[in-house]
Computed example of a mutant assay.
Amino acid sequence: MGKADADGPELPDLPPEWGRVVVPDDAAALAAEAAQVRRELRGAARGRTRRPALAYPALVIVVALLTTIGGLLVATWPRTGRSTGLTTTTPDPTPAGLAGRPLPALDLVDAGQAPVPLRGLLPAVVLLVDGCPCPDRVVEAAAAAPPGVTVVTVSGGRTPTGPPPPGVRALADPAGGLRAFVNLPARPDSATVLLVDRGGLLVRVVPAASTVEEYRADLTRLAPAATPTG
């Protein structure tokens, strides 16, 4: 048995939308409803517990996907300096690489525009003065050259730089073939020196000679061998 609390003076006023509330005399009558409430509470608690447990595997999957995508981007992203062609460029020869190479058979011109085969002047010290007349370097070379070694100056354009010092042959290279052969830039403050033996091989190339002392020791290698007497 129970009685309505809405009519009793012992209970506080309840919201009218709750309707008529009956309080049983025996609390055991509410056992079934209490059990139902406990089941609902336990179900809600289990749901809150499962959500973090399910979130962890999902997080692992997301991280794995991001790592895979990042690796693919790194592997396929174009890199600076990566060659896309199939051919490679051979570097220009260096002075060290020129040593031992044969001098090309070039015809230069003298002051009268007459052709002069360069190989006909060997052995020789050839000074490329197309960037700098460098008269001091020319005089030093002429003084240091051993007997039988020709000192040749080669200027650009169609006429040689002159007049040359005594013992020096002044020639011009209108086509620039000798400068192109050594593949070294002309310098405004120094001459390029080529030391060529009697067989036409380059003994040494000095890209920018500032003094004869840089190649004086190699001049003896150009001197013709003495003819034995008997």
Rank of each mutant, 00 (worst) to 15 (best):
F181Y: 14
D136M: 09
V74P: 00
Y215M: 06
V212Q: 01
Q113S: 14
A35P: 00
A53P: 00
A55S: 13
L194N: 05
A180W: 09
T90G: 01
E33C: 00
D5I: 02
L59Y: 12
D92P: 05
A6Q: 09
V203M: 08
P163F: 11
G131E: 04
L72R: 14
D110P: 04
T84C: 10
R169V: 09
D110L: 07
Y56L: 15
T220G: 15
D136Q: 14
R50D: 11
T153M: 09
V23F: 04
Q113T: 10
A217I: 07
P160S: 11
G162A: 15
D7N: 09
L86F: 04
R221K: 15
A180Y: 08
A223T: 09
P146L: 06
L184K: 01
L118A: 02
L222I: 04
V182I: 10
A114K: 12
R119N: 11
E17A: 10
T76H: 14
A96I: 02
A32I: 07
L171F: 10
R137T: 05
V60M: 15
P93T: 03
A111T: 13
L194W: 02
R42W: 13
L118E: 02
A208K: 03
G71V: 08
V116Y: 00
P91C: 06
V149D: 00
G200I: 04
G112R: 15
R20Y: 03
C134S: 01
P9D: 12
P57M: 13
L73M: 11
R101N: 04
Q113Y: 08
A141M: 01
G199F: 10
V60C: 15
R204P: 01
R221W: 07
V182A: 07
G70C: 02
S210Y: 02
T88I: 06
V23E: 00
G230A: 15
R216D: 12
P16M: 08
R169C: 01
A6C: 08
T153A: 10
A144L: 15
P16A: 15
A141G: 02
L66R: 00
E10W: 12
P16G: 12
T84Q: 11
A32E: 15
A226K: 11
V60Y: 12
V37D: 13
T76R: 15
V116F: 04
P117I: 05
D5H: 05
S210D: 04
